[in-house]
Design a protein around this nucleic acid. Structure first.
Length: 258
DNA sequence: ATGGTGGACCTTCCA
């Protein structure tokens, strides 16, 4: 069972790239971020025509997450618990083929310091709390998405340039490791313990051509999911195409009965 | 050197 995550940076602008990639990669489940549209404007028909069920949690102009699945999507939970005043569409959780999955778009947090960085850290506290709840169920689960956290200096092409950036700040990394240390597995690092495995390259300055990237998209697995992990990698191909997103998909394969 | 990339939206915000 192949589960992928991809920040598409506008599903409307990216639809040809998304359709093309679904057709060639044939993932079973896809966690999308940065839809940048309300639910009514999601290109549901085009995705359903490829054999996917669709659940969306959209928002006008900003954010927005979705779950696409070849299996029925059950027990949907919209939004990250812990702050009823939070109106940003950044979290969607559901069960597909016995696996609990979440599509998450963690706040960027720049500039530092400021309200946005505080919101990021607060959102991470809520994610840690949610992961703790999920771990109590001892289920197979995957928390996938754009975490906007670059875990280590080796995950950044120029760590000195990002030392004060919200993606690399010690507070961001500390909370990311608090999350991991609950007992989750960073699936990509389980298969590629070191080296550059970037998932994002800025549009500016020829970053893609120079491989000036960062690893900020992650698949975090419960212990029960990690036991079933068979493969994990970044698919760089979509980033090199015309009208590309600035992120590229990360995927894993779990040995789950179908 | 006050640019630069891209998306949404309509003038500025966000990444």
């Amino acid at each position: 069972m192949k589960i992928a995550s991809w920040n598409v940076n506008s599903v409307k602008a990216r639809l040809p790239r998304v359709v093309e990639w679904l057709d060639e990669f044939k993932p079973d489940v896809v966690l999308l971020q940065e839809l940048k549209c309300v639910d009514e404007n999601f290109p549901r028909m085009e995705i359903e025509d490829l054999g996917y069920n669709v659940e969306t949690h959209g928002q006008k102009t900003y954010n927005g997450v979705a779950i696409l699945s070849k299996y029925p999507i059950e027990d949907v939970m919209v939004g990250l618990p812990g702050d009823k005043s939070d109106e940003q569409a950044r979290y969607l959780e559901a069960t597909v083929n016995t696996v609990r999955v979440a599509a998450l778009y963690l706040p960027n947090g720049n500039p530092v310091p400021g309200e946005k960085f505080d919101y990021k850290l607060g959102w991470m506290d809520r994610l840690i709390a949610r992961a703790g709840k999920l771990l109590q169920t001892e289920e197979v689960f995957v928390l996938g998405g754009d975490y906007n956290v670059c875990p280590k200096d080796e995950d950044c092409y120029a760590p000195e340039r990002f030392a004060r950036d919200a993606l690399c700040m010690p507070e961001s990394r500390d909370k990311f490791y608090t999350l991991l240390n609950l007992g989750l597995t960073d699936a990509l690092r389980a298969f590629h313990p070191s080296g550059h495995n970037y998932t994002y390259w800025d549009y500016q300055g020829g970053a893609w051509q120079k491989d000036n990237g960062l690893r900020i998209d992650h698949l975090l697995l419960s212990p029960q999911a990690a036991d079933k992990l068979r493969a994990c990698d970044v698919d760089r191909k979509p980033r090199g195409r015309e009208k590309a997103s600035d992120h590229t998909p990360i995927w894993c394969e779990l040995d789950v009965a179908e």
